[in-house]
Amino acid sequence: MLELKHVSFTAKDEQNKDGGKEILHDVNLTVTERFVALTGPNGGGKSTLAKIIAGIYQPTSGQILFNGEDITSLSITERAKKGISFAFQQPVRFKGITVKDLLTIASDKKLSVSEACHYLSEVGLCAREYVNREVNASLSGGELKRIEIATILARGTALSVFDEPEAGIDLWSFNSLIKVFENLHQKINGSILIISHQERILNIADRIIVLADGRVTKTGGREILPELLSGSRPKTCAVLTGEGV
């Protein structure tokens, strides 16, 4: 359903017009399974890859296919309409826009209070207290993350991308979140690409992709998990570790 072919991305450098840092190098991957987890060290390029899928960044080279169609040049809106949803690692705050407003936009129809509440309860929020609250600075980081997930549930599209959904969410809620992800597939009959460092999430994935230093370094089923967890820390800085000097 989703296929990335030879995707590279160089971030523009304001000071040096020709230069810039290559963040993704020739990334090839497909998401056909129900549940794919993307993991890897901080700074490896996972969030950048998610933004490329959502259309927020344009790849410097390469191609993105969605259900066989080349969507590389499509805008964020067009991709959203084709069925791609993206939950941000850092959700955005709005003055004056309520939780119900966001859920209404996401579901693309008039939403009753009880329908809105349903999505909120799924992510463990006491719905009545939240439905009319503004999505502004008065919400905590964990609350915002859950509302972000609820909007993706409300969209129910063929592909949902979550960027570290577990961040800032307490352990108790995390357990029920796992169930939410497990159920989501059945409901939307689509795929989930989830960026995560959590063993529990990697454990329910049909496939795990490791992205390090802008490259896919490993991919496989759940069976690669023990190796990933026991493996040495990713080599981040040769000078510091004394390697290659």
Partner: peptide, 29 residues
């Protein structure tokens, strides 16, 4: 208007002009 606010609403299916209008309406509500 913060670019990330526009991007968020566009990723929920609004086009840029609709997103802008929504943000302003909320802001002045």
């Amino acid at each position: 208007i913060a670019g990330e606010q526009l991007i968020k609403l566009m990723s929920l299916g609004l086009d840029e002009a609709q997103a802008e209008e929504y943000i302003i309406q909320g802001f002045l509500k």
